[in-house]
Design a protein around this nucleic acid. Structure first.
Length: 112
DNA sequence: AAGGTGACCCTAT
DNA sequence: CATAGGGCCACCT
């Protein structure tokens, strides 16, 4: 069982229309504090593996992590999320209080 | 086999 | 709000 397998297993549980942060995924995969590994692991499957909803992972501020290394996948990420109903604010961020996925609550009830 | 690197995160200034 | 620095660790030369 590699650390990647654990990371992918967690990401696959994120339901459509919801997002999780890198740090959150790391914690759920028993890799607390190793958020970078999550990004690294996802970089290896993006565009390659369609079984993993990589677009549902954003950074701790609710932003998509843009990088030239992603060759457009970052922009694609936003398009995919919007297609799922996730809305971005004027600062290009998603409101984590509304869209953050909470394990155990399949259809996150957005109570403030 | 050692060193650079990356889709991160947190705290302090 | 912005910048800076430390911690993290598997992957690829």
């Amino acid at each position: 069982m590699t650390v990647y397998a654990q990371i992918y297993a967690v990401v696959q549980q994120i339901p459509p229309g919801k997002v999780a942060t890198y740090g959150q995924v790391a914690e759920l995969a028993n890799l607390a504090g190793k958020a970078r590994l999550v990004g690294y692991a996802l970089a290896r499957v993006a565009g390659d593996d369609r079984d993993i909803p990589w677009q549902r992972v954003v950074n701790a501020r609710g932003e998509i992590s843009y990088s030239p290394f992603r060759q457009g996948n970052d922009y694609l990420q936003r398009a995919l999320l919007e297609r799922e109903g996730v809305q971005f604010d004027a600062a290009d961020r998603v409101n984590l209080r509304v869209y953050r996925w909470r394990p155990g609550e399949p259809d996150g009830h957005t109570s403030l």
